[in-house]
Every structure is written in C-alpha cells, then in structure tokens.
Simulated scan of single mutants.
Amino acid sequence: MFDVVAFDADDTLWFSEDSFRKYETQFVDTVAPYVPVGVDIKAALIATERKNIDAYGYGVKSFGLSSMEAAITLSNGEIPSYELQKILHGVREHLTEPVRLFDGVAEVLAEVSSQFRTILITKGDLAHQTRKVETSGISHHFDHVEIVLEKDPATYAHVLKSLDINPKSFCMVGNSMKSDILPVISIGGFGVYVPYEILWELDHAEHPTANADRYVELETLSLVPEWLAQQHK
C-alpha cells in the first residue's frame, strides 16, 4: 500500500512546543511590568507572530523577532534595553538547547526504515532545523531530509514530484492536523495523525470531513510500525 513513509520532526519525534511555552512565559513575565494592567500579553505576542509569518517564516528566530517587536509595541517603546537583552538571551538559549527525543523514537524509526523508504519533512528555519536533525542521533534512519518553509498542498506536491513519489503510495506521520495531515490527504496521500498534548495556537485545524478515510489517528508513535504492517497484510 505504501512505498514511502515520511515523518514530521517537531513534537512528533522530539519535544518542541514545550520549550516555546517556557519562553512565552518568560516573555510575559519580562514585559508585564511595562504594560498596562488588563492587556493580554500572550495574545498580543501570538497576534504579532501571525502577522509576521509571511516575512519571518516559522521557528525560534521568527518567535524571537516577533517577541522583540511585541515587547516594544506593548510597552510603547518604554521597555529598557536590558529587558530586551533578556529576551534576546532567551532566544539564543532556545536555539542552542539540545534535542530531546520522545521515548521509543529510535526504535520506531529503525523498524519503519527497515521496511519502507523513510524520509523526514519538517518546516522552519533551515539552520536551526538542520542542526537539530544532525545532532538528534536519528538522521541515519532517513533516506532524505526535506526542510520546507511551509507545509501546504503545493509544497508536498513539489517534494513528492522531486523525489519521484506517487502520492497514493505516500504516508505522512505527524502531530499537526493542519501541517501534516490535511495537505497530504488533499493531494491523494495518507496521513497518520499522532497528536501531542501541546499544540501551537497558530497550528490548530479541524479534523477533515472530506477525505476522512485518508487518515488515521494513533495514540502514540510506538503504534505506527504495527499499523503500517497491518496495511500490508
């Protein structure tokens, strides 16, 4: 049924969003003394991120730039430079923190890659995502790694065409309905949705009504090898 199995990276293979939540909290605590009471600082930060996606893309650097902008805007330019330096230090710390794999990831990838052509498709900043892949200890399981600016139908179609992959024989495994499942099933592929308990506010999407038979939801990544094996019986 499937010739190629692809995996998302952030919050599918390793922890990611929990770190963003940590630095969001630090941002709120840093900026709060300079912002009028009653202002929803986190909501303002998310709105700034949303506005800047087209210009900055995704990832820690984008988050950092939006954080600096939001801090200056929310404080009407009154936040001291040493507080901005604190935010900048957090961004650098975030960029250099080690990759933390979910339990059992290496075993899952070893089993899947022994049976299928296995690739990684992740979006975000090229330098940061490349560093994470290279230091993760699992890159040898992938026949190909693709780091993209966006995960939409056009991007998936382009990647599959460039790798000579028939969408009907392609299966994408990931934690994001918006980025990993909906665009893949829209071009004729299959999605395996493995939700993580924390999801970025800008990555929310409803479960599909069309092509709903083109995806399955599994509770944990550890169930993926067995599910794939059942599809090939």
Rank of each mutant, 00 (worst) to 15 (best):
I198N: 01
H128A: 07
A6R: 03
V216F: 06
K168Q: 14
A43R: 06
H89W: 09
T25F: 04
V184I: 10
L74E: 13
V108D: 02
D40E: 11
E150V: 13
G137C: 11
S81A: 13
G64C: 03
D213T: 03
A32R: 15
K233C: 12
K51T: 03
E150Y: 12
Y156G: 00
R92P: 00
L149W: 11
Q129C: 07
H204K: 06
C171L: 08
P98M: 02
T220V: 03
L228P: 04
S67H: 04
G174A: 02
I198G: 00
E201R: 06
H158N: 13
D103G: 03
T118C: 14
P183M: 07
L45V: 09
S62T: 09
H128V: 09
L95A: 10
R50T: 05
L88C: 07
G57T: 05
D213L: 01
Y82F: 15
A9N: 08
M68W: 12
Q231E: 08
A110Q: 11
H232P: 03
L74F: 11
K51P: 02
Y156A: 11
T135C: 10
S81N: 14
A229D: 13
A157W: 00
S113N: 12
V216Y: 00
T118P: 07
S162I: 00
V60C: 09
E83T: 03
K233P: 07
L120E: 14
V148C: 06
V216G: 00
S176F: 01
G189P: 07
I198V: 06
T73N: 13
Q129I: 11
I121G: 06
E17P: 05
E17I: 12
K233Q: 15
V31C: 00
K151M: 04
S75M: 02
E134T: 12
V99T: 15
L88T: 15
V60N: 10
N76G: 15
F116I: 10
D11C: 04
G38C: 10
E219D: 07
L101W: 05
G90W: 12
V39C: 08
T135V: 09
I147A: 01
G188L: 09
